[in-house]
Design a protein around this nucleic acid. Sequence first.
DNA 1: AGAATAGTGTCTTTTAGACACTATAGT
DNA 2: ACTATAGTGTCTAAAAGACACTATTCT
Lengths: 297, 297
Amino acid sequence: MQKRDANGLTEQEFLAAYRPGDYVRPSVACDMVIFTVTDTETSSYRKNPDKELRVLLIERGGHPCLGEWALPGGFVNPNENTEHAAKRELKEEAGVENIYLEQLYTFSDPNRDPRTWVMSCSYMALVDSANLRIQAGDDADKAAWFQLSFKQGYDDSTEFLGGVRRIRRYALELTSDDTRLSAIVEHSRVISKNCSEEDFRIVENNGLAFDHAKILTYALLRLQGKLDYSGIVMHLMPELFTLSELQRVYEVILGKTLLKAAFRRKIAPLVTETEQFTQNAGHRPSRLYKVNWQGIR
Amino acid sequence: MQKRDANGLTEQEFLAAYRPGDYVRPSVACDMVIFTVTDTETSSYRKNPDKELRVLLIERGGHPCLGEWALPGGFVNPNENTEHAAKRELKEEAGVENIYLEQLYTFSDPNRDPRTWVMSCSYMALVDSANLRIQAGDDADKAAWFQLSFKQGYDDSTEFLGGVRRIRRYALELTSDDTRLSAIVEHSRVISKNCSEEDFRIVENNGLAFDHAKILTYALLRLQGKLDYSGIVMHLMPELFTLSELQRVYEVILGKTLLKAAFRRKIAPLVTETEQFTQNAGHRPSRLYKVNWQGIR
DNA sequence: AGAATAGTGTCTTTTAGACACTATAGT
DNA sequence: ACTATAGTGTCTAAAAGACACTATTCT
């Protein structure tokens, strides 16, 4: 291409002479919401264990937010894109590779980090807990898998001239062996012709670093929203699983129970039956299935 | 809070002493995909005009990509977040305010801009064309609304051990009064247990700047994907509209025709009927509706 | 009158919800 | 035998698809 600009330069000449300005640039970090699903302890030899949703957090060893728990993450390096950075962090901080990864949202409020201007490009990752052979946080940082409870509380729509404002509050509770964290995040949305605002606000926060309660809420809503039309859950399942297990995973993420017959009809195209069965369960054995990746959208 | 870190500093002391490192930081820009819907010329006084989807592009007056057409956008300033930047750009470059705005995706490949390291946080905006009283591009830059044709071509799934690779190609054609642009973008997705890769690749590009063909494709897929479960289309409609008009907007975005009766059943909760009717149409008048914002999800 | 669209009725098909019933290993 | 779950059958209700029919205004 030999086009010349207003100064008579070709593109090659322009780029050779180009010097980036010295205006202020943000740092860009990747923060990762890594979900997995684990079994609870079961009380009786007969009872199947319940499923619980867990997320990986890391205790901050320095200011700011010293002693609070943060999503694993780190800065994006030059010569890599955010996805590379996310994968690198995933390996370094959680010891996992080759798992489901999806970009969520870029959080960019200028004061979200008290040190300096840091944007966070957030990612959601899903891991089968059987895949977690490497214990998270081998290094100095203290890492832990927190069990997550996510409940919608306050919910209100107020109408105004030509529009609606919808406010919902979500209560997050996170528990690990020795730590309990909690947060309340308010999601408000103005829906009208002349305005379109969506906002997450941290109403209450006990022990979560930065704006990570927001990011976590965003991730949970995305996960819930994707559940029924995409086969995203399959990334949380082990190689072989029973349909009841799969149903319990859906249930723990959605926070409600589902009807067995309807559930099975719906997920039928997403799974393939095997000839293997569970054993020693204290009740009728259950057929084991594997994921039918063709059926996943 | 009086916690002290490993150096015996409180958070206040730490922050007061904090100096950001001088490692390389990216520039962050917002690029905007601004959609609107317009009427085509109608051949006969009887025939209703068709709808067409349009997107705003700006011809680049300098290197790089001199003479090519780019999405409107600009850098994010310190003390604003990406959404503020997007709104500012929307006003400056397209002369519109208070319209629907949604963050799409952050494109961050290190070489996407030949000058320097620039990440693009992309947004999608929807405007009712009646709202465009201010002609876009009053200033030096040449701006134009391009009519968009978006067709899926090649589509293939190849199975491999324990997974699927799905490849789809999309053909974009953009036409304004005096310019024709086109691009082919390939979307490939690997869906399997041990891998999760999603990638957009520009296969062919005639006249679109940077990686903007990618961003545009991403926006179109998002718009299509959101159509049926959210009332997002309503942001493209004027104050009063007929149900046939609304249907034609759905049809032009989805690229397929819909059945009238079923369509009306489905969108019924999203609209409110008025007592006004179209006039001088050369055929039976049509009732005018307005948006029922309560019904929008 | 007749072109072109507006608007509705209704039949069929598909999907979802509800719930009861039968089946079966393990102690 | 009994517990706890596995798995299926079937009825009902709701939603989607298909298509034909009637209604209405302007030239």
